[in-house]
Design a protein around this nucleic acid. Sequence first.
DNA 1: AAATTTGGTTTATTTTATAAACTACTTTAT
DNA 2: ATAAAGTAGTTTATAAAATAAACCAAATTT
Lengths: 94, 94
Amino acid sequence: MLKALDPLLHSELRLGVMSILLGVDEADFVFLRQETGATAGNLSVQIDKLQKAGYIAVEKTFRGKMPCTLCRITDEGIKAFEKYVEALRSYIDK
Amino acid sequence: MLKALDPLLHSELRLGVMSILLGVDEADFVFLRQETGATAGNLSVQIDKLQKAGYIAVEKTFRGKMPCTLCRITDEGIKAFEKYVEALRSYIDK
DNA sequence: AAATTTGGTTTATTTTATAAACTACTTTAT
DNA sequence: ATAAAGTAGTTTATAAAATAAACCAAATTT
């Protein structure tokens, strides 16, 4: 009855990042930081985990002279997110 | 936009316990163990946390000669669960 | 009566989340 | 030109959480 929850997505910050990326084609580090309110260190670590899992793609570029980390959700990430949401519903829908 | 998630409920096992208790008036330790698939130690610890938070009430009785730990969700627990679900929707609903 | 099972709790270990400190560079003020 | 402050992060250390392993007391089975 209760479905297992993907531990990679069952994290407030990582879920927040995925949720944002689902709606925006791409987002940079600074934007994700603002939207989530996370510390830079925490965000850096969690972005890394999502990337290593293949849920997001990360591109390091420059905007002018400043470094800029761009994130995009992958197809695999979208699928994982949808599966996570479906599993969650076994907990929260009657 | 993204609402904070009550960390006490944002745990697979504790959320599972709450989800079960929402539907059943009361449930004992053994039943919760079967439904969640958790180890006894983990379940014991998480029940304790939910009780200390006031989200569930725990009554220690005997069924025949065997000890029996009964759990019920409290009004506070129901409210917290509903609030958690609403916060979650800020992540998973478009 | 010894061995096993039941219903747990307590303690130790691993994992995860978070914060603090640091790096590398840029911009601004002096 | 240089010092001070800000930006965009990463790395490392610490705190918290989850989990498993070990244990306990009583009941049941052999």
